[in-house]
Nucleic acid binder design. Structure first.
Lengths: 341, 341
DNA sequence: GCGCCGCTATGAAACGTTTCAAAAACTTGC
DNA sequence: GCAAGTTTTTGAAACGTTTCATAGCGGCGC
């Protein structure tokens, strides 16, 4: 099957290649009649223009890359939808790279994206040791926007949610209800967001005069339902038990809740639980989850818009957007019940 | 910032462009020493080769397209993971097109993918009226694999799950428990999978001498939690009420269960519920959901493998793979409780 | 009928790579 | 030291598009 080119179309329509190219890119300067015959020729032939050749002559790639290290989390699905919406609006495709957190794979995919000369890259989390890779890419001229993560500096775009505030919100809520011994089920602390949520939470707890039990200051590599279940077991096995548990995302919280209830405990009477992200399923849980809400879709949308602006607008201004999180109270939190102990 | 080309590298390393190209593509035919100096030159310059130019000379695009019309459903996240795993394994990128079911957008994205000359396209569902678009693409030589959908014919690859069997499984389970009046909460019936699930379910129900209440044979455009909640309201409002409800996916089922319980009914005593897909959250539901399980990850993986085989293997054989679904029984189903009525 | 003008159409160069036939640079063995 | 190999390198053509300076074509006013 011989490949169809603009030349075949030109021949068929009885015009030159230049004219076909004009018809494709600036139809307004081509005579009505000519345009029609070119259109007809393309339809009959089933011509689809070659983006590679196009790109070679200077056109920008109509694609952006989206790096997601944690695709299981419905939170990121929402982010994706925001990104997709903005990208689609502008006529761009989204290349999703979601390999579960292997830094080597991440590098390989970044390299591929760069070879493709995608218009830009949106990153939700940077794999261990890969931040240098990103800064090198930026130096070579590739627009990069950090999503859901405070940017390193002013010379770069970023969209984020104030995680310190989010952690504080959770802590204040629990302590406000009267909890005095609390637990934290966190993700890897070298991930800025986890560190921030922890620090905000800790501040609130200390300010309220409560204590984060040292045995219950947990950290898990993966922030999954499974990890949450394990966390619950560890908490139950500890010497001293908390009356409230803050989980750094809803998946963990769901796992914690599930395991706790399976073990015969009551939520919120025995353990109050606060999650993070407010994913759609938080409402559907056995005990609907109190959670810190983040505007996931908006996050993705604004990030993609920033990226595309940086990619196409000469006088683009870098911008650091920070959203404020919001506490959504549901049934999984309540005051501690002394009698239950 | 002037663009770096292979020529700059050649100059810096003191060799010809041909040699640099060789170093990149067939390092084994280049002398050790030359290779080293080229490598050094590339590193110093920060050279990244241009995939567009490469593709123009015959190389295949290292990307495949994945069309998902229903990205909210965690089921598709799992499919994606399978696809990504297979693609990554083979060194491919995945372009995800997930715009929520608008056929016009779908066509636009397909066009972009085709212009990019992606190695192939994986489609999980075909938007209304777009099947012709797909067959035209195939005619032009673009490999297309239908995922999770019985293919039209033998001259095309496909991977699917037997949805008729899945529906039957649900029907047999419920009728086997003694339910005699059942409801169906389905998605759009012009989607093959929904039609199939319905027909399998119907067969089982009729074989068992039970009846699908005419008032409770529901069909919703979107298969979401929200639609499920609405379904529950409709079922409760109907003249005659079922004792069991089969939902064509877990999102619907979760919504139904939630609304039912919110309205003060008990699951499974008042209403037994069966879902479909067995998403991770089915276990976490208020009442853990009985569901028909599909091997989502495997589906995506095999589909991508088929696609890549078709894209790269001269003597590729088309193949239609059909997986068998499996019933996972949890707390949301039980025998009908006469006293409750 | 001429010179101009405004539209349209043309075609060659350029984009950054790969390929491949041919040249160059080495090795051998004698 | 030379012929015959063998290994390595070379450079020009090709890929499919866009761009842009230039050419062609009508019509118009005089």
């Amino acid at each position: 099957m011989k490949r169809l080119t603009i030349l075949d179309v030109a021949e068929r329509a009885g015009v030159s290649v230049g004219t076909v190219s004009n018809a494709l890119n600036r139809p307004e300067i081509v005579a009505e009649k000519t345009l029609a015959s070119i259109q007809a020729a393309m339809d009959e032939l089933g011509f689809v223009r070659n983006a590679a050749a196009r790109q070679l002559t200077g056109a920008k790639s109509p694609a952006i890359g989206l790096i997601v290290l944690d695709i299981d989390n419905p939170f990121f699905t929402e982010v994706y939808r925001g990104v997709e919406a903005a990208a689609n609006e502008a006529g761009y495709l989204v290349v999703v790279c979601g390999l579960s957190g292997d830094p080597t794979h991440e590098r390989r995919q970044l390299r591929l994206l760069e070879e493709q000369r995608v218009a830009g890259i949106l990153a939700t989390r940077v794999g261990k040791g890969n931040s240098r890779v990103y800064s090198q890419m930026r130096k070579r001229g590739m627009p990069v926007v950090m999503l859901d993560r405070r940017s390193a500096g002013k010379n770069q775009c970023s969209v984020a949610v104030d995680d310190v505030a989010g952690g504080r919100l959770a802590g204040e809520h629990l302590c406000g209800l009267g909890h005095e011994r609390v637990a934290l089920v966190n993700g890897p602390r070298d991930w800025t967001q986890c560190a921030d949520r922890r620090s905000g939470f800790l501040t609130a707890v200390e300010d309220a005069g409560a204590t984060l039990l040292p045995d219950a200051d947990l950290e898990f590599e993966k922030m999954t339902i499974g990890a949450g279940e394990e966390a619950a077991r560890e908490i139950l096995a500890a010497a001293e038990q908390p009356t409230a548990i803050f989980c750094a995302n809803d998946l963990l919280a769901l796992g914690v809740e599930h395991a706790l209830i399976a073990a015969g405990h009551r939520v919120p009477e025995d353990f109050a639980i606060v999650g993070y992200d407010d994913v759609a399923f938080a409402t559907m849980a056995f005990v609907p989850l109190t959670s810190v809400r983040q505007p996931a879709g908006e996050l993705g949308k604004r990030g993609a818009e920033q990226l595309l602006s940086e990619a196409t607008d000469e006088n683009h201004k870098h911008e650091q957007i920070v959203f404020e999180p919001e506490l959504v109270v549901r049934a999984s939190t309540g005051a501690p019940v002394p009698s239950a102990r």
